[in-house]
Write a protein that binds this DNA or RNA. Structure first.
Length: 565
DNA sequence: TTGACCACGTA
DNA sequence: CGTACGTGGTCAAC
């Protein structure tokens, strides 16, 4: 428990325009970035403190200088998101929440004004806070022009961290640990952005060419190629060649003209009409190619894949809902058809691992249902559930998923009743979450992240629109599972990162329940073992004694497509 | 230029 | 399509 207690020193570091400051554990200094980074290395090697920053993004320069050993962190922005919910976490908001100041009086984001009269008094040039307690609006930007102010800024960070930690400890037993893990995830996001995902550019070029055709030599050629692709669909509907395939309303009218009457033109609707009229199949084939051409085409390749054949995009440690990681530039939604273009570089392999049936296993932990926990001892959790319910496995699976996600279609009814009888603790937790959502009340995930459920309330109050009430309920029920799964995943990833670094292993993709680690080929087996051990360690810490088993499917591959589906 | 909607890829 | 995300298309309102 040492790492969770208050016996670990907090040391705040801040950086602004090439200057930096460090305050805490008896140290207090300002200087150049290298000077402060050096002080961090010294501190890290002596007392193993936890470094505090307003956001990993602000501290990136310093963090990069302390590559090893990996620093422990308290990320004020991530802690704020966990403690108070929502996604906005700029310093003024973090400060206000930590000090329990009303948001209504918080100054607007930095305006760059020299004076700030909104607190009703004159702000001295060296005052960090106003008379009402809020940070001055330009605290994090223009104000930081001297070393003295940088030191004051670091002290403020330290103060916020202490307040956040006190609050976290009163809210529940796991929140401090969640903040530690989340802070590590935010650091990992910086590394993911810098490192990128290794790709095989030639293969990607070929794949894109197969869908979108060869690179157009000119703008005219691009237009001609586009028309040619469109014509492959439009030739099936003589007399309607002027239909704009990119306009869903026109497509709907065109389909109605050939007897295909649909409420919308979404793929899962049109799938049923593939054999009714040849234009449907042609349209869906066109859509797939169009997606590649527009979103994952040559423009994407040129802009997002660097000269070192790494695909890069922005990463965020949590979304604004339950707390899953997000990524940009296709890193989280790369079509399966392009995955053979994601390949380990020379002398390296991918160690790929995904968590099996993570969401029902997570439900067993967060609900504390001893009977459901028993089912997680099986490699296939749905087998014991099916046998207990006296139904076939596919029925049990649909019922469990329906219970967790609130699926309304399909025939899960009888099995759902069986679930209520067999696992009343787990089902009871889901029901309570649903009701919280219906009422618009916030809830906390297992790790303690506050999840607001006030969505849609602006457009219609509780009870006035049953569909929106139910949508909030489903959101809440899903959030406690999805959010807890994200917490376990991040704890796992952070452990893999820490254990893998000495072997030269680098996490290059985090995909909700899947990890892709780029590792030297001669260390592949070690890294694969480490990934599994990291899951055992992380899940034991995270589940804190719950008798729930987590399983990973781990393999060593050259291309992402080599993985099982 | 911006925001709404549609559509669709991933988990 | 149960939830979530990011992206790019068109269209209407600026």
């Amino acid at each position: 428990m040492a790492s969770h207690g208050t016996d670990v020193d907090l040391v705040a570091v801040v950086v602004h325009r090439g200057r930096a400051a460090l305050v805490g554990a008896g140290a207090r200094l300002a200087g150049s970035v290298p000077e402060v980074a050096s002080a961090m290395v010294t501190a890290a090697s002596t007392s193993r403190p936890r470094f505090v920053w307003w956001s990993a993004r602000y501290a990136g320069e310093l963090v990069a200088a302390v590559a090893s050993p990996l620093p422990r962190a308290w990320d004020l922005a991530e802690a704020h998101r966990i403690l108070h919910g929502g996604w906005k976490a700029e310093p003024g908001r973090v400060w206000a929440a930590a000090h329990a100041l009303p948001l209504s009086s918080m100054p607007e984001a930095s305006s760059g004004d020299l004076f700030d009269f909104s607190a009703g008094d004159e702000l001295g040039p060296d005052d960090l806070t106003r008379s009402d307690g809020h940070l001055r609006a330009d605290a994090a930007s223009g104000w930081l022009e001297s070393d003295a102010r940088l030191l004051r800024w670091a002290e403020a960070a330290l103060e916020c961290a202490a307040l956040q930690r006190d609050r976290a400890e009163t809210l529940g037993p796991r929140i401090v640990g969640t903040i530690h893990s989340e802070s590590a995830a935010a650091l990992m996001c910086l590394e993911l952005e810098a490192g990128g995902l290794p790709v095989d550019r030639a293969v990607l070029e070929d794949l894109i060419g197969g869908f979108a055709g060869p690179r157009a030599a000119s703008e005219e050629a691009a237009v001609a190629a586009r028309r040619a692709r469109d014509a492959e669909v439009l030739r099936h509907v003589p007399g309607r060649e002027s239909t704009d395939l990119r306009n869903p309303q026109q497509v709907r009218d065109m389909l109605a003209g050939v007897g295909v009457d649909v409420p919308n033109t979404r793929k899962w609707v049109l799938d049923a009409y593939r054999h009714v009229h040849p234009v449907v199949d042609a349209l869906l084939t066109w859509r797939k190619a169009e997606r590649i051409a527009t979103t994952y085409g040559y423009r994407w390749l040129d802009q997002c894949v660097g000269p070192d054949d790494r695909l890069r995009g922005g990463w965020s440690a949590c979304d604004g809902a339950a707390g899953r990681m997000t990524a940009e530039n296709g890193l989280h939604n790369l079509p399966a058809a392009l995955r053979s273009g994601v390949a380990a570089h020379g002398g390296h392999v991918f160690v790929r691992a995904d968590l099996g049936q993570i969401e029902p296993r997570v439900l067993a932990v967060v609900s504390g249902d001893p009977v459901f926990a028993e089912a997680t001892r099986a490699d296939d959790l749905y087998a014991p559930v099916a046998s207990r319910l006296g139904v076939e496995r596919p029925v049990a699976k649909v019922a469990v998923l329906a219970a967790m996600y609130g699926q309304r279609s399909g025939a899960a009814g009888e099995a759902l009743k069986g679930l209520e009888r067999a696992y009343p603790v787990a089902m009871g937790l889901l029901d309570r979450a649903y009701e919280s959502g219906v009422r618009g009340e916030p809830l906390r995930t297992f790790g303690g992240r506050l999840v607001p459920t006030g969505r849609f309330l602006a457009q219609s109050p509780i009870g006035t629109n049953p569909a929106l009430d139910a949508a909030r309920g489903r959101f809440a029920r899903n959030a406690i599972i999805q959010g807890a799964a994200a917490e376990l995943f991040k704890a796992w990833a952070a452990t893999v990162r820490a254990l893998g670094a000495p072997l030269g292993a680098q996490i290059v993709l985090c995909l909700h329940d899947e990890l892709l680690v780029h590792a030297p080929a001669d260390r592949a087996d070690e890294v694969a073992t480490l990934v599994d051990r990291a899951l055992a360690d992380a899940s034991r810490r995270w589940a804190a004694g719950a008798p729930v088993r987590f399983v990973a499917d781990t393999s060593v591959i050259q291309r992402w497509s080599d993985a099982k589906p």
